[in-house]
Design a protein around this nucleic acid. Sequence first.
DNA 1: TTATCTGCAAACCGTTTGCAAAGTT
DNA 2: AACTTTGCAAACGGTTTGCAGATAA
Lengths: 131, 131
Amino acid sequence: MQRQTPQRRAILSVVSAASSPLTAEQVYGAVTEAFPHLALTTVYRGLDAYVDAGLVRRSIYDDGVARYEIAAEHRHFLTCTRCKKSVPLSVCPFEQLEEQLVRETGFQISGHKMEFFGLCPDCAERNEREG
Amino acid sequence: MQRQTPQRRAILSVVSAASSPLTAEQVYGAVTEAFPHLALTTVYRGLDAYVDAGLVRRSIYDDGVARYEIAAEHRHFLTCTRCKKSVPLSVCPFEQLEEQLVRETGFQISGHKMEFFGLCPDCAERNEREG
DNA sequence: TTATCTGCAAACCGTTTGCAAAGTT
DNA sequence: AACTTTGCAAACGGTTTGCAGATAA
């Protein structure tokens, strides 16, 4: 069973408080404000523990770096290819599609991941100005 | 401008012939049958060149490893979490959703990526047998 | 002939692992 | 007391880079 430690509590609270998925490095940056001696390794292990427990979801972005978010909130994001900011979407229109895929393919589907890429309004404007 | 070499031609033909996205390692394995002295580095650089040229699409899977596929074929996949095999889906139901997101968020959307995860029928059966 | 491509080796960087000490139950 | 977590340092593995020589245009 997983053990409660101040570090892990801090890790989880940082991830819960975030408004978008965080990298391990970002979690580390936030948690070290309260725990200056914390090791990055500990962040990885704490996050892994929460992922195993089903509390946190981990997904790999196109830059090859993992992002962590609270698993309870099932969300999709719109990511700006220029400034990397992402906007959470309010809906998940795929439960219905999943059911259809189960019927058609026989897979036991356990999850999905979807991301849209493009320029956010700010960067689109900047692109026009700067070429 | 990009230069034509026998190695690059072979890299592209391996990627085009594949029925699902390949890792750089897999491309390397296939191309070295014709070019035994080929370096893995060359495969990476050739693939990058084709990605820059827009001929090949690169995406990072949840195992952190990049997969390469011909960009022209816009496809989505259903990936087994146990044996890693993936089944291409015949449709892309998201063009409509993209239009809606453009209206709602003002993003200039340039693409998307979607993957479903689960157990394929074979692995689901194996899981039941082996526990 | 000039810029690009290749191969080798080494660097890179996010992530993982081994181990002894510290902390949790 | 038994077992998990922590911190450090070192390993790992896919990918990238520097450089000298080979090759395409």
